[in-house]
Amino acid sequence: MGSNNKRYLLYIAQNYSYAILRPLQQAIRARGDEVCWFLEGNEVDPLFLKPTEKHLLSIEEVKAWQPDAVLVPGNVVPNFIPGIKVGVFHGFNAGKMNHKGREDHFEIRDCFDLYCTQGPATTQPFLRLAEKFGTFKVVETGWPTLDPMFRRDLENPYRIDGDTRPVILFCSTFSRSLSCASIIYEQIKVMSKQGNWRWLVQFHPKMSQDIVDKYKALENENLKFVETDNVLPLLKAADVMLCDTSSILIMFLLLGKPVVTFKNHTNSSHLVNVEQLGAIQPALEQALSRPSELMAKIGDYCDDIHPCRDGHSSERVLLAVDDLIESGISGLVSKPMNLLRHFKMRRKLGYWKV
Rank of each mutant, 00 (worst) to 15 (best):
G2M: 01
S3K: 04
K6R: 15
K6I: 00
R7C: 02
R7S: 02
I12S: 10
I12Q: 06
Q14I: 02
N15Q: 08
A19K: 02
R22S: 05
Q25L: 10
I28K: 03
R31F: 00
V35M: 00
C36Y: 00
C36M: 00
L39K: 00
E40R: 11
E40Y: 01
P46E: 04
K54V: 01
I59F: 00
E60Y: 03
E61P: 01
V62Q: 01
A64Q: 15
A69R: 02
L71P: 04
G74A: 11
F80P: 07
I81P: 03
P82Y: 00
V86R: 07
H90T: 09
G91S: 05
F92R: 07
N93E: 12
G95A: 09
H99A: 09
H105L: 04
P120T: 06
T122Y: 02
T123D: 13
R128L: 08
L129S: 12
A130H: 12
K137N: 15
V138W: 02
V138S: 07
W143Q: 08
P144Y: 10
T145C: 10
L146S: 07
R151W: 08
L154F: 03
E155W: 02
R159H: 13
D161S: 14
L169K: 14
F174L: 03
R176S: 15
R176K: 15
L178I: 06
L178S: 14
L178E: 14
S179P: 12
A181T: 08
W199V: 08
H204N: 06
P205H: 04
S208D: 15
Q209H: 10
D213P: 03
D213Y: 04
D213F: 04
K216T: 05
A217P: 07
L218Y: 09
K224T: 15
F225Q: 12
E227G: 14
D229L: 11
D229G: 12
D229P: 02
N230Q: 14
V231H: 10
P233R: 08
K236F: 00
K236Q: 11
A237N: 15
A237W: 13
A238L: 01
D239L: 10
M241D: 05
L242V: 06
D244M: 07
S246Q: 03
I248D: 03
L249H: 10
L249C: 06
F252G: 04
G256S: 12
V260E: 06
N264H: 12
H270A: 05
N273R: 13
V274G: 13
A279P: 04
A283R: 11
A283N: 12
A283K: 14
Q286A: 11
R290C: 11
E293K: 12
L294G: 10
I298W: 13
Y301Q: 14
Y301R: 15
C302F: 14
P307I: 11
R309E: 05
R309Q: 12
D310Q: 11
E315Y: 05
R316P: 01
I325C: 07
G328I: 08
G328R: 09
L332N: 06
P336N: 12
M337V: 00
L340K: 06
H342Q: 15
F343V: 10
K344C: 07
R347A: 14
G350I: 04
W352S: 05
K353A: 13
